[in-house]
Design a binder for these strands. Sequence first.
DNA 1: AAAAAAC
Length: 578
Amino acid sequence: MEAFQLLSRGGVKFDKTRFKDDVRLFNKEKGNSAKRKEAVKYDSGELPAELDFFKYAKGGPAVKRKAGENAEAHDGKRRRVDEDEEDEDDEEDELGREGSDAESSSAQPTQRHRVTAKGSNVPGPADSFEALKERYHLSSRLLTNLASNGFKHPTGIQSHGVPILLEGRDLAAISPTGTGKTLAYTLPVLQALGAPAASAKSTAGAGVRAVILAPTRELAHQIHNEFLRMAEGRKWRIVLFSKATAATLADKNARDKVDVIISTPLRLVASLQNGTLDLSNVRHLVLDEADRMLDTEFLEQVQEVVAACTHPSIQKAVFSATLPAGAEKLAMEMLRDPIRIVVGLKDTPLPLIAQSLTYVADESSKLPTLLTYLSQPYNPPVLIFVSSQPRATSLAEELIINGVPNVDCLHAGMTKKEREDAVTRMRRGESWVMVSTEVMARGMDFKGVREVINYDFPTSVQSYIHRIGRTGRAGREGKAVTYFTNEDAPFLKSIANVILQSGSTVPEWIMKLPKPSKMKRKAMGKVQRGDFVDKARKIGRNDAIKKRDMIAGSKRRKEKAARNGESSEQLENRGGDR
DNA sequence: AAAAAAC
């Protein structure tokens, strides 16, 4: 526990302004002197030099890249793919930076990914932000804010999605992680607001006019930041809904001056049930991470929010990088005459994320494998996913005990402040190794993340796609490693298929594994350690795979053998399970 | 299929 407290040290207040500039620093944009100045200001002032974690990297014991080299390489690559957007939540950051990165890129983002649109009277895409101004009178203020935040060219989801939303249509948008989805709804919502509710000129009626729902606090916070950046210079009241802000809105007068609310569902539902919130004037409702929001655990809450949005001309939109059939059906049912657009291949990670699978025989082999990995040169920060809160805590402790520097931990069991601090350290590049649960899997946009390690196997293809999507954002390269044990074998093939589909390679023997359903049944049926994979190393993979079918019965054999006094070694040589 | 997250 002591070690864990270490994790929560460094009580840096989460500060949006500062955060924004952190992001800029990462981009080390050239040719934007205004931004550069700001960056410099922070560099020499509030922001510690360590913000540039490459410096750390240089001095750190286990880090391979040198300061300049890393950044250079990174920059060069970024140029190749600038246009995709990020996932659901991305900050504009990537996108915007994207713009600056794209300076040398002649390719149009929108041509990079195939975009498919379905629906009636689909508006054509806009090739540039200026085109949005011409076609839809996108406000000069928004254009200015786009430019000052470094957004030069719309990504695929932006050029297709923004016109649809500006025309007031309902939208289901599927676009890979890190391709700028957040901005794709931020712009139209702000454009539609017009005069702030608080201003005398407002004709919008009383009460909040736009609601954005996201599955985690961290993501809601990030979206809020994005809204604030695009709203700069306007008096819109954009509220990140929390217990504290909800309290201040208990007063109806204050409430009626709010333009946009960004919230997690339950928080909103609580206020609705209190009677301290009225959504009858909401004209725009966005579900970010839509498939997650339509999960059974969230569905009821979301439906309650939807039901509370009673304005007849409400526009609804859902965004995600993944949208399984079940979720899509639910989404389509709540939309009116929707347009559905898919950027790239649905449910496929970005090809610029280099993915690999690493076999670790069992749980006990994971930590040594990770420690070995972290003792060699790597690219910080590394984001490590585990399956539960206790495992996140204990893995972080283990890493600290083993001398890994700058380890952080983030899960929903931590206090609000601890969570905020962890995010801040991450944003500043102070974390080299961040151990987290599924809470970080979706939407979070940390530009610097080079590597994702799935220490615990993801529990779904969607989880896999979102987790590894924390890297490779806004056209950058990324690397994702997934550990698998014998117990994960039943789910291995589905992940392997995803990897193949997105252009990375997997060992041939994995693809020869039988159908997941069949394997799963075997795994559930008492095969303790279906360690056929382990055997594969000794006796050749194909043989091992054949033997796998014998594993189910092996326990019985084992018991019998034990009775006969046969050693497990002998058993193993016969190909039976231990 | 299974856990995490939401207050």
